[in-house]
Write a protein that binds this DNA or RNA. Structure first.
Lengths: 158, 158
DNA sequence: CACCTAATTTGTAATCAATACAAATTAGGA
DNA sequence: TCCTAATTTGTATTGATTACAAATTAGGTG
């Protein structure tokens, strides 16, 4: 951990690619920039955002690049039961708080999570490779809509 | 929490269905029994196991039933990036320790996880609905194969 | 116990995110 | 500037899951 996509400059990012033997293509750099600005985007959302800056880009490139970034450990792919992965740029120990109504994901950083993560090396006999901690709770926005009777509960990502 | 599919008798299970207005069909009871005996099965694995006891069952029924059980809160659907959900019958606070090589999932019950779960109500301002904590670590079986040079690393569920 | 009806099951067709593939393009070293 | 392996692109395909409508059935009622 400690690495965090959001804090890399473009130059640092290019160095990371080169160090691993990968080329610094404009497509990769653009996807990197878009990832910085998005929260927990799906491939489709990334594709839509990137087409604005890079109209010729192919969806296949998006997928290949996201898999490459996952392999490099700078993002995590989060598979969901609705078959739409989302991509997490926060690789430090944290909890994804997911609203089952609107699908919004927000990060909860917490000392106890770090403590739990650190304790796992001893408990498992080896340091784990990565984590994915999800918790489901209705977000305030949706809670208010429900209170006001303005929404029928329809569950996402659950 | 406290509910645990593995510890329900068939009669108790029938009562749960009826209490919620659902019929106790032989298909549902068979799926319930098979879930008791499987660890973290996919829909396909459940289908294969059930066809032995109930040859006429349809894959659609498997899916409908698994979704019903999820709705009742007695199992959790775990979506993965390979687009194959697996179903977790352990709804108590625990960590899924996933081997990225063979895909094996084992449960780690731990006091810190319970403590973390219990602390979330205060931190979020509301009691969360459910959790899903995954950690990736190569299992002993795969570790040994790798040491012996008998396997090329090929990643699953990651 | 037989009947009735809404719930459930079944088989097939459709969906759609993700992947495979092969041709065209390009980063970056020589 | 050239060269080549890496990368990108567009299209075709895959495969888990869902939609749908017809057939069946659980379980309540008289």
């Amino acid at each position: 951990m400690v690495l965090m996509l959001k804090f890399f400059s473009e130059d640092e990012f290019i160095q990371i690619l080169r160090k691993h033997g990968y080329k610094a293509t404009p497509q990769r750099l653009t996807i990197f920039e878009v990832l910085k600005s998005k929260d927990h985007p799906s491939a489709e959302e990334i594709y839509e955002a990137i087409k604005k800056r890079f109209p010729s880009i192919s969806l296949t490139t998006i997928y290949q690049t996201l898999h490459l970034f996952s392999e490099l450990g700078i993002i995590n792919e989060l598979g969901f039961s609705d078959n739409r992965s989302r991509f997490d740029t926060n690789t430090n120990p944290h909890i994804n708080v997911i609203c089952p109504v609107c699908g919004k994901i927000s990060d909860l950083e917490d000392e106890l999570v770090v403590e739990l993560w650190d304790s796992l090396e001893k408990k498992l006999g080896k340091k784990p490779i990565k984590h994915r901690f999800d918790v489901y709770a209705i977000c305030d926005t949706c809670e208010n809509k429900i209170q006001a009777g303005r929404v029928r509960i329809e569950v996402k990502n659950i």
